[in-house]
Design a binder for these strands. Sequence first.
RNA 1: GGAGAGGUGGCUGAGUGGUUGAAGGCACCUGACUCGAAAUCAGACGUUGUCGAAAGGCAACCGAGGGUUCGAAUCCCUCCCUCUCCGCCA
Length: 423
Amino acid sequence: MLDIRLIRDNPDQVKQRLAGRSGDFASLVDEVLAIDTQRRAAETERQKLQSDRNRISKEIGIAKKNGQDTSAIEAEVRGIGSRIEEIGREADVADARQRDLLLSIPNLPHEACPVGSTAEENPEVRVWGVKPDFAFQPKDHTVLGAALGMLDFEAGVKITGSAFVVYRGAGARLERALISFLLDLHTTQHGYEEISPPLLVKPECLEGTGQLPKFGDQVYHSPEDNLYLIPTAEVPVTNLHRDEIVPLERLPIQYAAYTPCFRREAGSAGLGTRGLIRMHQFDKVELVKITTPETSMTELESLTANAEKVLQLLGLHYRVIELCTGDIGFGSAKTYDIEVWAPGQGTYLEVSSCSNFGDYQARRMNLRYKDENGKNRIPHTLNGSGTALARLFVALVETYQQADGSILIPEALRGHFGSAKIG
RNA sequence: GGAGAGGUGGCUGAGUGGUUGAAGGCACCUGACUCGAAAUCAGACGUUGUCGAAAGGCAACCGAGGGUUCGAAUCCCUCCCUCUCCGCCA
């Protein structure tokens, strides 16, 4: 959430930077300003009355000790009490309303974020490798997966529903190999601590990272326990430090976590995504960083490089694009997407989205750190997929398919997979 | 799920309805002593909000939320969590 002081002091600048996003937030900013004025007036009055009451109550205590009659003065304080209750209710309502409004205003795009309105205006930052040549017509992963007994979409539908899949045999093994390959890479080469978090979280966690209150319809919810299935490991992992004051020496914090991710994808059903591209449940290794404000932008570069390393080691052609102001996520200040080439699809697939959230999430989850002067400050949070597994699976089998229908396992993965070939 | 005990500041640990944001201890910080360190002594040492140009003032916070009262860490109610024992279970 944005700092109310920033909005109060520079409302026009805030509006101008929000204007780059899709959607109109100027009126929300005005509403917050109005409620803030109202809230502070009520708060000031309440505090003054409370101060009066405290003072007089103390006098009563002293008078009673001296055996004096205090009934008149008590009646007076009773009057103050009811006014405190009245004005206090007003202040509390305004406070809650202000928080609601702040929670529904997205983050300001960073100055470095390219201006644009749609995904078409996302600039390409760099390209790695080239599209592989095939002496034959490359097949789609669903065809390959069925032929080699790796993917069973019918079984997924049977036991759960559409957009769920069963990996089996070499497919299940390949998925498992990829998970350990990614975790080993990030923990031993890139300095991340491995985390295996709960997959169910409290609503406060989703509010902290920004999924609630605005995107509640995208998350699976268990009402009996008021717990949510995580849409990404970002949620439990970033919230590890919710409500904490982290000592400066601990920064930067770097976590890598493998988890399944659960997404309702409400509103996108039947969008014509085939195979593994868009599922309600998919595996992902997520990278999370908590850094000082001064270093977050360079940390975003290294986090993105860590995710790219995965594709480089697997020999998969990819490109990196930068999201423009109209396309970045709700809480993000700056985002790179990494898109891997999938020959069977004939398109690039987003396998990673690396974002710097600035202090937006940290302020929501009341996460702070002590700076060198002992002052509490708000750190920056970052995260990126390193990488999403289902689409990586797609790119891998489609890129390494052979004329005879078999799939070559890239050198770097063979140790984890246990053989050089499927089929 | 049942029974009991308990949730107080970075940690530990007192707390009687009344000048308690909260004793004491530890840790950390500053200063004195010292060539330096240790020990010792002195001081400082929570968070958020609000008013203020600032200095600083004020308010709230003792697991969470309600209630009683002129006044609640302290009394009452509801909920959450932790620990011990029992039950169940991978």
